[in-house]
Amino acid sequence: MSNSYIHAEGLCFSYRDNDGKEEHPALKGVSVDIYEGEYVAVLGHNGSGKSTFAKLLNMILEPTGGTLVVGGMELTGKELTDDELLQLRRNVGMVFQNPDNQLVATIVEEDVAFGPENLGVPQPELRKRVEDAIAAVGMTSYAHHEPHRLSGGQKQRIAIAGIIAMMPKCIIFDESTAMLDPNGRKEVLDTIRLLNRDYGITVINITHYMNEAAEADRIIVMNDGLVLMEGTPDEVFAKREELVAVGLEVPQCAALIHELRRRGVLLEGTGISTPEACVELLQRALKART
């Protein structure tokens, strides 16, 4: 946990207008570290710069200022060679929002193979990687299906398998659950958790669902192109007013604790971001008073 995998300092990015004259700053100096094996959630409302930040991490967009080091590779201040870019992208995979727009092939297993094929992975390792990746997301029985017939959650799991097959060190989920129904969202979140816990993959989950963010080890809150705050879910959700002020909210269980405290009920403890922690805290208080 002590090794910083991603190190950003004063990272800036501006979008240009179509005519190239006006610049719209999307990131105005972001400094964060993300550590190996960590599960980080990046919260922020639409337009807060969180997706832009994600796209810089594997150079889909090039930063216009600041320093960025990923996996020991310096990405800023020089032209990257094609090999370096490939190296970066095999290490830092990305799963996007719309599941339909990231599947390339018309058969599940061929889609999953797309990444490793591009990397020139030879047989029989290629086949093994594809099978393992499909198994990791629990889709083995769908290996020969057509992706467009699958549900949203299943498509997204296939997209994840396609990234896993490249054996990345880190996966960025760019609002990957936003278009899914509750079941699909759960499928994807379970998969994310598994990748982080069992495969040791560093996970960055960009989201605007508070309940999702509560599952992470650490939350980075972005607003107006800057990091507003960072900390454990409990630390972040303890600052309800600040979150509401930037168009976010806290999970229901945290809201409950906040409201009870506001009414003068003494509740000891800091665990407020998950129902389990919240129950523990309430239980202590209830026991003390009955």
Binding site: G93, Q102, G115, E117
Partner: peptide, 27 residues
């Protein structure tokens, strides 16, 4: 067009760089 942009990014993220040096799953 939006889909095309998304797909292009997704393909880049999956290291697509033309047919050179590609292997095939199903030969």
């Amino acid at each position: 067009f939006n889909r095309a942009f998304d797909l292009a990014s997704a393909m880049e993220c999956r290291c697509y760089h033309g047919g050179e040096g590609r292997t095939r799953l199903n030969v």
